[in-house]
Design a protein around this nucleic acid. Structure first.
Lengths: 171, 171
DNA sequence: GGTCAACAGTTGATAAGTCAATACTTTACA
DNA sequence: TGTAAAGTATTGACTTATCAACTGTTGACC
């Protein structure tokens, strides 16, 4: 019966009756994230700000008054973003952020959130908060904690720094 | 002390010392998905196929020989994709899929995977499989199951149909 | 049979993401 | 000090995603 194995495998692939638990987990994470991004993106859309832009503004707010060098923002972002320069261009166009070259090291550009940017974050918070509640109503506090832990394990298994979007630096 | 509340809140927002468990969960899901998409995207990149394209090819394979109407593909996708037409254009450009108008209802276009598309899926499977194993090595089988369940609850709480990428239809 | 609303896909315009090459500044070191 | 190497952003070329308007087709109703 050995020669039949390839065929069986091909048969299985045609109909895929058994997705493994691992496969389901990976698909579930991606699908859930897609849902969440859409959900929160829709909340932010009327304000003219994208989810990534919002995240960067929160990072800048967390960084405080002196701002943050452009490339350091990337380290703190939820999703990796090579196009950080242009993203901040857009923030600046809206008047939510501004930039200034560092005097000590003229290679560095500090990015800061403006007053208008802070106001935007304040405006956006209530609807975002309620979307949060709505999205999470299927999970108890304990389950949320478990989910966080499992996702950390998932990311940890692939050797990824466990950074958090808007936690301010120690200093 | 009532008048101090707004100020306190503003102070808190500056440094954000306490992200809630819910917030962490949402961020964790998005960040994990970003990581997974990058990981699997990198595996697929040498083959010239994107993650979404790969997913559609699997859906088409699951659909069997008669193929699937264009818009029905969207229902089965992991991530929502308004640009399905052009995505399939690209698949067709590579010779991985083809289309034909339905005779009974000339509005409908059936999309099918080609022999070359099937071969591509076979080629891609081994490296993808090992990426899978690598990504999931931080989670036991039981934990994977728990993760799947929690994510389902998360999505269920927002009223989303629990569809699965490549599960074949009943027929 | 003719008209109209609903349906299935496609196309166009615009925005956003991605990768590689470039400009400018600083540091190391002969 | 002069030159090379590394660091920090930015820009350009290209691909992809997104939303809205459009074409062609069908079915229902008069």
């Amino acid at each position: 019966m050995a020669p039949g194995r390839g065929l069986l495998q091909r048969e299985l692939k045609q109909s895929r009756p058994f997705p493994t638990a691992g496969e389901e987990a990976v698909l579930g994470v991606i699908r859930s994230a897609d849902l969440l991004r859409r959900k929160f993106g829709a909340v932010l859309e009327p304000f003219g700000v994208s989810l990534q832009q919002y995240n960067v503004l929160r990072i800048l707010r967390g960084a405080g008054g002196r701002g943050l060098p452009t490339l350091e923002i990337i380290d703190r972002m939820i999703e990796q973003a090579p196009g950080i320069t242009r993203l901040i261009d857009r923030l600046a166009d809206h008047g939510w952020a501004d930039r200034s070259r560092c005097a000590e090291d003229r290679r560095v550009v500090y990015c800061r959130i403006t007053q208008r940017g802070l106001e935007l974050l304040d405006e956006v918070e209530p609807p975002l908060q309620s979307a949060h509640v709505q999205v999470l109503r299927g999970l108890s506090e304990a389950e949320q904690g478990t989910l966080v832990k499992l996702l950390e394990q998932l990311r940890g298994g692939s050797g990824i720094p466990a950074h958090d979007g808007e936690i301010s630096p120690g200093t």
